[in-house]
């Protein structure tokens, strides 16, 4: 623990963390300046940023491309929403139950999925997510089916948009710090080794399948947390949260921001949601523009916005350092 704090302060001195803390402070004082419409937009960005980072632990760091992250996100959302609607247990407990349930489902689903690789892994995650979608969609008596689970209680503290914004901000920051610690731990480095070369990783004594399963479960936990937050934020939960199109949204968010950068999905989420609101305000054909952006990304900017910045600017700094030597 002490070394984490030390590391934190050492980092604070570097430029990157200066900007990061400025951004966080800005996020905290933002409700003083802008209207609630924007605050709720930013809340949504924060939640999708968390979902993106959770997915990225699996996709960008471990190299396991999942087509079904939305399934686990929806498990988190439905767990919290249904507990709030059907039971009287404390709000905090429902917020914890969401990620835990997603983690459990992730453990079962992941146990099967890690036995397959590449396209078969991806298709298996897709099929499981669609099963989850079907359950929420068809189990009308319990989940409300297509009408969704709506009208569940919310603690009074979170009734205003600003206070729910602070709640979301706090949880998302805590989760992101946890994820940051994990990806920079020996465990996180081992995951990156698996991404780079699973066969070689096996031969340095790592049980690759087991580590992939761990990554799957951790990713599910945080996807579930994002789902729980979104349930509370929007006050309603629908089967389409689990749909493969929602999963694709999450993948696009990771790709847009940059998969090989910790904060990539955060940038991706902000840009994606901002653009979608902006363009859809002008035209009913906004998905056309989204499609063009996606195709452009794949063809010309595969490392996303973060990758673009670090590939264009970082090498210049690196070169300077090397010539100094």
């Amino acid at each position: 623990m002490r070394e984490i704090i030390q590391e934190f302060f050492k980092k604070t001195l570097t430029l990157r963390l200066f900007w990061l803390s400025t951004a966080v402070i800005l996020l905290f004082i933002l409700p003083l300046f802008i209207s609630t419409a924007y605050i709720s937009l930013i809340s949504e960005m924060l939640i999708m940023a968390l979902a993106g980072c959770a997915l990225n632990l699996m996709m960008g760091y471990t190299g396991m491309v999942s087509f079904g992250p939305a399934g686990l996100y929806a498990v988190g959302a439905y767990t919290t929403a249904l507990l709030l609607k059907k039971t009287g247990i404390p709000f905090a407990a429902t917020m914890v139950a969401g990620p835990i349930m997603a983690g459990l489902v992730g453990a079962v689903v992941g146990w099967f999925c890690v036995r397959r690789t590449a396209v078969y892994f991806a298709l298996l995650t897709l099929a499981f997510a669609q099963i989850i979608w079907t359950i929420f969609f068809e189990w009308y008596d319990f989940t409300g089916g297509d009408d969704g689970t709506v009208g569940f209680r919310k603690p009074e503290l979170l009734l205003s948009i600003n206070s729910s914004y602070y709640f979301i901000l706090l949880i998302v920051i805590i989760c992101l710090i946890l994820l940051w610690i994990i990806v920079n731990s020996p465990f996180g480095k081992t995951l990156q080794a698996i991404r780079e070369n699973p066969v070689r990783t096996e031969f340095i004594g790592v049980n690759v399948k087991r580590y992939q399963l761990y990554a799957f479960i951790i990713s599910s936990l945080f996807l579930g947390a994002a789902g729980s937050l979104f349930a509370v934020f929007s006050g309603s939960v629908f089967p389409d949260y689990a749909h493969w199109i929602k999963s694709t949204d999450m993948i696009v968010i990771c790709l847009l921001g940059g998969m090989y950068n910790f904060l990539g999905p955060v940038i991706g989420s902000a840009v994606y949601i901002f653009l979608s609101k902006l363009i859809s305000g002008y035209t009913m054909y906004w998905m056309l523009f989204l499609g063009i952006i996606v195709v452009f990304l794949v063809l010309f900017m595969r490392n996303g916005i973060a990758g673009f910045i670090s590939h264009k600017i970082a090498p210049l700094i690196q070169e300077n350092k090397e010539t100094e030597k």
Partner: peptide
């Protein structure tokens, strides 16, 4: 992944 997302862009 990139093939999947590119063809998803085509859907849109």
């Amino acid at each position: 992944l990139y093939q999947y997302i590119l063809t998803f862009g085509l859907i849109l």
